[in-house]
């Protein structure tokens, strides 16, 4: 993709490994914003910057979808994640070999009805500049967000 630098993670794709991937996303966001990594002693997430919060929110939902739906919680599956760090922009490519689906068939949640499910893709789409899904194998999710220092709100209102 011609990015300045790329960070890759190949990991078992389970909910037990989710925190590892999410933490890597959070740390990569700090690099895009020109900051160093967080305090090594900190066990919590530092998501005060909206850029970090929105990417982590979106990634976490896509990761959940892959574990729960593409792989159906099966053990022994893997996920490949590539972080392309550009100038003020982060693109995350996620590859899995699970069941494919058609994102265009996923309805927008009726937020007035206080849904208890079906919100993940809505969160991802709303928090990012671009969400691309290409069925495989391997299936590819491409999540892109530009860092706008002055912008502190999500696209959705």
């Amino acid at each position: 993709m011609g990015s300045a630098s790329v960070i890759r993670l190949t990991s078992p794709c389970t909910l037990r490994h989710r925190a590892l991937a999410v933490r890597l996303v959070a740390e990569t966001c700090r690099l895009v914003r020109g900051e160093g990594t967080a305090d090594e002693q900190s066990m919590g997430y530092d998501l005060r910057d909206p850029f970090d919060a929105e990417i982590v929110s979106a990634f976490a939902e896509i990761y959940n979808n892959i574990v729960l739906h593409a792989y159906g919680r099966r053990e022994g599956e893997t996920i490949d994640i590539a972080f392309h760090i550009g100038a003020g922009m982060l693109t995350i490519e996620i590859r899995d070999t699970g069941v494919t689906f058609d994102p265009t068939l996923v309805p927008e949640p009726d937020l007035d009805a206080l849904p208890e499910g079906g919100m993940g893709l809505h969160i991802a789409r709303s928090m990012l500049d671009e969400v691309v899904y290409e069925p495989g194998p391997p299936n590819l999710w491409r999540l892109t967000k530009r860092h706008r220092p002055a912008a502190t709100s999500t696209k959705a209102s």
Partner: peptide, 8 residues
Amino acid sequence: DLIDSSGV
């Protein structure tokens, strides 16, 4: 610090 759709 962090919530997802399952938490909501």
